[in-house]
Design a protein around this nucleic acid. Structure first.
Lengths: 151, 151
DNA sequence: TATTGTTATACTCTATAACTATA
DNA sequence: TATAGTTATAGAGTATAACAATA
């Protein structure tokens, strides 16, 4: 029941194809996330950027593109969708006029909060159904996976 | 150093936004996976289908679309790319002529093996750099996440 | 009628290449 | 020259709607 209490050594039970299993699990879960596309008319990439602006404040294009690991040209088009829809605005950085700061508007902040809650609803329900120990495993794994994505 | 040895009760330190953190980690890791686009000219969705045909044998369109949770129309276009490129073939099911079985060709089988190894290379390297305990956490989490994706 | 699959169309997301503006 | 950002263009992936063939 409580595996850590058994003294089992992880090295003896290493997964033979951990990479493949992780890739499959992440891919299918991502597609599942993406299929939950609610109000606001934004896709997952645009909503992720808007959420970041909402939570971390104004960001330059380069910062956004590096965080999401997409090309600057791709990010430029994503933020174009946000600005066209009125969810973000461009402002020139006065100290370095090559840079552009993107900031969420009031509508953008509102949508970020609402869409986030809506998109997380079904996931939160699944997580609540797990044991506290399983949630702790997922919390640790999320940090590890985020670190891998950064590397 | 070893959190479980402290007697800490998980309920007292529950993550306030585990769903959001998991979503973010999965999204960024998925994009990282997808950016590793090697030979063969296939995208991630087409390669995932080809890998499934390679590992599980002939499948109908409905089986493929349900497994990947995409619409039948979307899956039809994905397999179109596979058949156009010569990596899979269509055959009518003789017992129910509405059904179409998709089967990997010899070229498709070869590409599935090669591409899979190539795509997993960088991930396996990161996983090897972790401790055995961290790998065990990821292995458990992968099973949990796969279950959530199925639900 | 119901099931299986396809085509038509439109949208998001992404990349590369070529460009402008600022440092 | 180097950096920051944009636009043009192309292709993958996805969905909905409308359709054809078979059960």
């Amino acid at each position: 029941m409580h595996k850590h209490a058994t003294g089992r050594r992880p090295a003896e039970t290493e997964e033979p194809d951990l990479g493949g299993q992780l890739r499959s699990a992440v891919g299918r879960l991502y597609r599942r996330f993406r299929s939950e596309r609610p109000e606001g008319g934004l896709g997952d990439a645009a909503l992720a950027v808007l959420t970041r602006l909402h939570k971390h404040g104004p960001q330059t294009l380069t910062e956004l593109s590096e965080h999401d690991r997409v090309s600057p040209a791709s990010m430029s088009q994503i933020v174009n969708r946000l600005t066209s829809a009125g969810y973000a605005v461009r402002t020139r950085d006065p100290d370095d006029r090559r840079k552009v700061l993107f900031t969420a508007t009031a509508e953008g902040d509102e949508l970020a909060g609402a869409a986030r809650a809506q998109r997380n609803a079904w996931l939160d329900e699944r997580l609540r159904a797990l044991s506290a120990e399983d949630r702790a495993v997922i919390a640790r794994a999320a940090a590890l996976l985020s670190g891998i994505a950064d590397s």
